[in-house]
Write a protein that binds this DNA or RNA. Structure first.
Length: 294
DNA sequence: TATGAGCGA
């Protein structure tokens, strides 16, 4: 009922509607004839139609099919015919064919499509090596081991003693943090259970997401992504979160991001060292982030 | 140019 009648119109396609105005009398017409092509390459098609006034009209279409030998090819095309086979065609019997379907694998590199995430970004290779686009990749920093970015003397980490003992480097069940129950050593202890169930570790409430020690990084090049930021900041200490602001519509980086450190001192040293540091041909601005407005 | 997501009691 209601449903059926509602669906009825959608079954008729608009393209078919036009044929319905005026009856289709084509069956009254003689069939289409194709004559030739003859030895001169002339092909004739004879067909009949009704014109707008409803009169029968005979339509003859004459086509000349150029024979290849007579075809007026460009000089260059003729010349190509005499080329020896090359590429994949060398090993194949392709007759006089000049073109082949290549089976060569070609990897297309798409600039970040919206929706794709960090896996595609520079972290796949050595990010800093790729930074020295076109430049010699002979530079190898003896301090941090990065290639292609900077010499040892310019290493942003060069006068870092060593990345200060970061929490992740410690076994999770050190005396201070082991649960009172005395778990097997090496067993994972969720932060909320560390320190005998007390929620405070190092003065921080570990049950809440760590929004502390948030560092804002601006003037990022547009192809800097989160893994790149992590690479850059990790040497200063344990990073709890990296975030690069991305335009939801375009997928383009908005040129700034945030890095959260577990330890405030590490964040501070990162700010001191990386603020003003040239990265991807831009000068980074690194400073304490204001708390999120939300 | 420039201070961030989204999950669901």
């Amino acid at each position: 009922m209601a449903v059926e009648s509602a669906m009825q119109p959608s079954k008729v396609r608009w393209g078919e509607l036009e044929e319905d105005d005026g009856e289709d009398l084509d069956f009254l017409l003689p069939p289409k004839q194709v004559i030739g092509p003859d030895e001169n390459g002339i092909k004739k098609v004879v067909e009949y139609k009704f014109n707008d006034e409803g009169n029968k009209v005979k339509i003859i279409t004459t086509t000349r099919i150029r024979k290849l030998a007579n075809a007026r090819l460009s000089k260059r095309a003729v010349e190509r015919r005499s080329w020896p086979k090359f590429g994949d065609a060398v090993h194949e019997d392709v007759g006089s064919r000049l073109t082949m379907v290549s089976t060569e694998e070609i990897l297309l590199e798409r600039p970040r499509a919206p929706g794709t995430k960090q896996e595609e970004s520079k972290v796949a290779g050595d990010p800093l090596a790729q930074m020295g686009k076109g430049g010699a990749v002979l530079m190898v920093c003896r301090t941090c081991g990065k290639k292609g970015d900077h010499w040892t003397s310019r290493c942003p980490y060069k006068d870092l003693a060593q990345p200060s003992e970061s929490i992740n480097d410690r076994p999770p069940s050190s005396e201070a943090t082991a649960p009172a129950t005395g778990a097997t050593k090496g067993a994972y202890v969720p932060p909320s259970m560390r320190g005998g169930g007390a929620e405070r570790v190092g003065g921080t409430d570990m049950r809440r997401r760590n929004e502390e020690n948030s560092v804002r990084v601006t003037n990022l090049s547009e192809d800097t992504r989160e893994p790149d930021l992590l690479e850059l900041f990790r040497p200063f200490g344990n990073v709890s979160r990296v975030y690069v602001a991305v335009d939801q519509k375009t997928g383009m980086s908005r040129g700034f991001g945030f890095v959260n450190f577990v330890n405030r001192e590490d964040a501070e040293r990162a700010i001191n060292k990386l603020n003003g540091y040239g990265y991807d041909n831009l000068i980074l601005r690194v400073e304490w982030a204001a708390p999120r407005s939300n």
